[in-house]
Design a protein around this nucleic acid. Structure first.
Length: 196
DNA sequence: CGCCAGATCCACT
DNA sequence: GTGGATCTGGCGG
């Protein structure tokens, strides 16, 4: 399991190193797992795409806190987003987990998704989808990922020789051009579970 | 396949 | 009151 030292590293390093690692969700003993295949970095006051650039508020407070905690928030009134907080206290930054390649608990994930036509491909290939599949909501906000309960990330890579691609972040039209263009979205090249 | 309306609610001006 | 780090199903080609 990844410890707090890992999450204290520079956010761009964490965002890329997380690719290929396994996110684990434990629900009363049943474990749902997926390999992280897509991430995005949100870094500091200057990054207008980062919620914390608007200042320290009750919602963004967790991003100013210690690394290794989750930042889970609601978007569009119905989808949860899972982030892991990075870097030092008082430096607000996080990595958004955008997509997983599901590896265990596929049947439970499929039920959680409540789709008309559930397919493996669409179970966790988006930030809102993966939270729905893994039953992640605000009850897991500010969760310590080093506790080894309910939600954590394994230390070892599941994929070897991972080729990483990068590009601009998705759906941040509200941000300034300099931040819209910054290539802070990372994914495993050619992986079929990357979003879009 | 692409396009898009609609869903739904909390944080914060 | 406004709008968002999204997604689904329905419709047309």
């Amino acid at each position: 399991m990844l410890n707090l030292n890992f999450y204290e590293q520079p956010t761009l390093d964490v965002a890329q190193t997380l690719l290929g690692k396994v996110l684990v969700r434990d629900i009363e003993g049943q474990r749902l797992r997926g390999i992280i295949v897509e991430t995005e970095a949100y870094i500091g006051h200057e990054d207008t795409a980062c919620h914390a650039s608007k200042g320290r508020t009750p919602r963004t407070e967790v991003m100013f806190g210690p690394a290794g905690q989750t930042y889970v928030y609601l978007i569009y009134g119905m989808y949860w987003m899972l982030n892991v907080v990075t870097e030092a206290v008082d430096f607000p930054a996080a990595v958004l987990i955008r997509a997983l390649e599901p590896t265990s608990g596929l049947e439970a994930m499929s039920q959680n998704r409540r789709l008309k036509k559930p397919t493996t491909r669409v179970l966790t290939n988006g930030p809102g989808k993966l939270c729905q599949a893994l039953q992640i909501d605000d009850s897991l906000n500010k969760w310590d990922l080093s506790r080894g309960q309910a939600l954590w990330i394994e230390a070892q890579h599941r994929k070897t020789n991972v080729e990483i691609a990068c590009g601009p972040r998705i759906n941040i039209d509200f941000a300034e051009p300099k931040d819209r263009n910054t290539p802070w979205r990372f994914w495993i090249k050619d992986n079929p579970f990357v979003s879009k």
